[in-house]
């Protein structure tokens, strides 16, 4: 680390004229991006918050009234919101855990030296490149009762599940949605974890080998701890995505059988019912939920990263 070339600026007492000038310059240079950030993020969010504090008439054009937090209170008092909340977290918990486990395994495999590795690394990314709606329709077709690939194969092998209407039953429907998500996004998790794997130095492994560590010990005591920042990063990205899930349940079940997500609920109110205030309140609630979860993650992840940084020193 080029520690010596970085000027120490932590001492506020030492603020010189040159520092101030530099700060001004830095501010001026970042100002355009700040303005753009404000325009693309802050303004729409502020507007959405404003919308969520009002009700807009669906029967009389142009009529609206300020209702304060009523839309939020109604949402938080409704069974639908909490059902969607629980279902979304169930989905996120299941799919992200599976993706991280499978993603780590996949990354370890892809990190091995073998012929055709470069090709395989590209190929495994294919599911991630497919549009979610398209893959959802494919899964729907495969789980079709009587004629779907999965149901037919299960029946032919005499396995249970062949005569189940997967998308028409509680539990099974969630399983299909989790499966579709895991299939699609595990490569993404694997890619991030693979990047983390590649920065672990070979010397560490050599040292472990010299000390007579078994493969398993090496994995648990070296690979996994050093991989943690990458895994946490993958977990953050995936959790945030999973908590906003919309396309999979929308295509596969339309929210039936315990699969309605928070985003679907907000969409229905906003787009289908044109309840602009109520729908905006739901999207803000979804946004707050995702933010709280991210902040919690970052707290824990921050700790990890700090440990790693200390170890590196």
């Amino acid at each position: 680390m080029a520690l010596k070339t970085i000027p120490a600026s932590r001492g506020p007492a030492k603020t010189s004229g040159r520092d101030r000038a530099e700060r001004k310059l830095a501010f001026r240079m970042t100002a355009p991006s700040l303005v753009i950030m404000a325009l693309v993020a802050a303004v729409p969010i502020g507007y959405a918050i404003w919308l969520s504090l009002n009700q807009y008439s669906v029967r009389t054009a142009g009529l609206s009234r300020f209702v304060g937090l009523e839309n939020y209170i109604n949402a938080l008092a409704s069974q639908e919101w909490w059902a969607a909340f629980g279902q979304t977290f169930l989905f996120a918990g299941l799919s992200v855990s599976l993706e991280l486990i499978l993603g780590t395994a996949m990354a370890l495999l892809l990190n091995l030296a073998f012929k055709g590795r470069a090709v395989l690394r590209t190929v495994v990314l294919l599911p991630y490149a497919i549009i979610t709606v398209v893959s959802a329709i494919t899964w729907q077709t495969m789980f079709q009762p009587n004629m779907g690939l999965v149901t037919n194969v299960l029946s032919a092998l005499g396995l249970p599940g062949g005569d189940v209407v997967w998308l028409g039953e509680h539990g099974y429907a969630m399983a299909v949605i989790v499966m579709a998500d895991v299939w699609k996004t595990t490569p993404f998790a694997a890619l991030i974890i693979l990047a983390g794997l590649q920065v672990i130095s070979a010397e560490t492994y050599e040292a472990a080998e010299l000390d007579g560590a078994s493969k398993w010990q090496t994995f648990v005591n070296i690979t996994l701890p050093l991989l943690r920042p990458a895994i946490v990063l993958a977990a953050i990205f995936r959790t945030m995505d999973a908590l906003r899930v919309f396309d999979l349940p929308f295509v596969l079940t339309r929210g039936a059988n315990g699969t309605e997500s928070m985003s679907m609920l907000a969409y229905t109110q906003l787009r289908e019912n044109r309840l602009v205030g109520e729908g905006s309140a739901l999207s803000i609630l979804t946004f707050l939920t995702v933010m709280v979860v991210s902040v919690i993650y970052v707290r824990f992840a921050g700790g990890n990263i700090r440990d790693v940084a200390k170890e590196e020193q």
Binding site: I45, R244, R274
Partner: peptide, 22 residues
């Protein structure tokens, strides 16, 4: 990390608001 997380979360609600009736 926090900035990335928040910025990504914000994009969600940016798509949320509909236009008010005329």
């Amino acid at each position: 990390l926090a900035a990335t997380a928040i910025a990504a979360a914000l994009l969600l609600s940016a798509c949320g608001g509909g236009a008010a009736p005329q």
